[in-house]
Design a protein around this nucleic acid. Structure first.
Lengths: 344, 344
DNA sequence: CAACGTCATGGTAGCGCTACCATTTTTATT
DNA sequence: AATAAAAATGGTAGCGCTACCATGACGTTG
């Protein structure tokens, strides 16, 4: 006696695939198939199985699934910041594109740290994700190797560059910085400053674009550049602008690293009764929606963050299903939005 | 012959726990223990095992772990929006608190939809998460049941209320709305409007606080309230303010649902040459850092979003490790920041 | 009508790990 | 020194699912 195994169900008593199979009077594997490749199961069984699933409230265990198939239905997403609106928009695009797919999202925050990125890539890799989406193109050699060996599609987002690990969606920050600066020059500004916080690689490239445009026009002066590694914010924009002005009182324009900084500059101009755009011209970067309602409205470089997220998912999904997109590098560009802040 | 099993390694050839065990000359279970409860393994073996782990580059498979232990090292986090700074801050607090724990984060975006929340809860539940953190207290009955049966600690964040599913960290939006409105009244404003977008339950409670204060002072008039279900933004704030003013030209103050709206109102005042705070007083909600540098600086209700995220994790972690905090409802409060926009 | 696909279904054997019990060794305790 | 108790280690048996192969029932073809 005592032949009956207690069957402790350490899993907590939720129905399993064999419960469903038993109830539907089929084999477990058929249930598995009915759920994943319905077209390979006869309509009759499919219906029976569906009924059993509904009745029991069966939900497949993703962990067991991942273990058995050596592939988790997870997209790993790595961004440097969660609060920066720019990345928040990319992430939103990714979530929206994946919301009615079976894929879950594993989001990591690198805090702009290469080391943290490596650590997270390690963690993510251990899950055998279906795809990896990472911000930027400046991975450390270790990170790059991890990405190359991830064994899944990889999309680098927010930038374009010559050597994708796999695929890429973004735009040229250098060109963006150049376009912003050229616009200020064309509008008649001459002593144009660059103000930037959190000088990550993307900001560096915008600065390079600024510098290229200024040098080409014979206007560059290193004292026009004010930067800090501190995290960007509106209050910081105000302070940096005051610094810049103290350093260079003849300043007549500023290209800001991003819109937060630009807003800080605008507020300080109000406070100090500096006329915008007459005395100072302002250009931001990213074109947050508040730029168009600011008073005066602020010229900015519009970027397509949400679209970048969507596109990245679309490309990854295509690669997963076998047909890799022919173009591995997608440049979504940007647009200069001319507004009152530079309408001299 | 052919006795040697090919051992196909469909897992892709990464080292497993038995590889480590073999190399270290111990049993697999000892490796498992050395990794999870090092104090239960002798120092010598621990060192040998660590050496083997390092040499092989072994990383445990979280899926196998979750399957075997019926518990995934995952925190499920549910927020209604990814781009709203308020939730981004909460999420950041959660990430920062969990960054050097073994727990991963599964983040879900409900888009303010109860149905979507139910769906995500279902998906999350199937993973047997270690804890669940959800925004708000207005779950549908189905969601509430799912939370109650999740079999793990649950923390509701951003609000306080009488009946937590399990634990709660937040503050009273009603009191916040009341405090903001009372401040305007004390400052001498009388025709005080309420302007709100995306009237989610939290906004509704702020409105209720506004109404309570206004009625108490005998100032309430339904025509003073301007709301819309549309998603909140700075441009929308501007528009709603224009609507409000058209409807009620004698308006002399506004309590805004949130800071985005407040900023939109401020910009419109600039544009229409309406003096702030003389002609119109403005109060925002949440106190984004730009409020203090705006010109004029904007009075707002400071809320502790980041801290809410951290606290939620701390409480969940305590519950996981067995000692549930004695206070299951934590009220982190808020603070009225008086600034120029209401300094009549 | 034999020989050969093709389709629908099922059985078996793991995926990589840990819970649950042994079993052995060491350390108190009397 | 004998015994109990605690500490350290290991073996076995799954967790819930799917890859892989096997089986049988049908056509299809020459």
């Amino acid at each position: 006696m005592a032949l009956i195994k207690p069957r402790s169900r350490r899993g907590g008593g939720r129905p399993t695939i064999s419960d469903v199979a038993r109830k539907a009077g089929v084999g477990a594997i058929t249930v598995s198939r009915a759920l994943r490749e319905p077209e390979r199961v006869s309509e009759e069984l499919r219906r029976q199985i569906q009924a059993a699933v509904d009745e029991l409230g069966y939900v497949p265990d993703p962990n067991a699934r991942a273990l058995a198939s050596a592939r988790a239905e997870v997209f790993g997403v790595l961004v440097p910041s969660l609060t920066n609106n720019v990345f928040a928009e990319v992430v939103r695009g990714i979530y929206d594109s994946l919301s009615d797919s079976p894929f879950r999202i594993q989001l990591g925050n690198t805090h702009y740290s290469g080391l943290e990125e490596e650590r997270l890539l390690q963690v993510f890799g251990s899950q055998r994700p279906a795809a990896l989406i990472v911000a930027g193109i400046d991975q450390t050699p270790t990170s790059r190797k991890l990405l190359e060996n991830a064994g899944c599609p990889v999309v680098q987002v927010m930038e374009t560059g010559p050597e994708p690990v796999d695929m890429m969606v973004g735009f040229s920050h250098l060109d963006g910085g150049r376009a912003a600066t050229e616009h200020l020059i064309e509008a008649g500004y001459r002593r144009i400053g660059f103000i930037g916080a959190r000088m990550d690689p993307r900001s560096q490239r915008r600065l390079a674009g600024y510098r290229a445009a200024m040098e080409k026009a014979g206007l560059f002066d290193p004292r026009l550049v004010t930067t800090t590694p501190v995290l960007s914010s509106v209050p910081l924009g105000r302070e940096l602008f005051r610094d810049a002005l103290a350093k260079m009182p003849t300043l007549d324009g500023v290209f800001c690293n991003n819109d937060d900084i630009a807003l800080g500059v605008l507020f300080e101009c109000h406070r100090a009764s500096i006329d915008v755009p007459k005395t100072i011209g302002i250009v931001g970067f990213n074109d947050l929606d508040m730029m168009q309602v600011a008073f005066p409205s602020i010229t900015s470089i519009r970027t397509y963050r949400y679209e970048i997220g969507r596109r990245a998912v679309a490309m990854a999904l295509a690669a997963i299903s076998g047909d890799r997109p022919q173009e591995r590098i997608v440049d979504l560009g940007f647009e200069l939005k001319r507004r009152e802040s530079t309408a001299r």
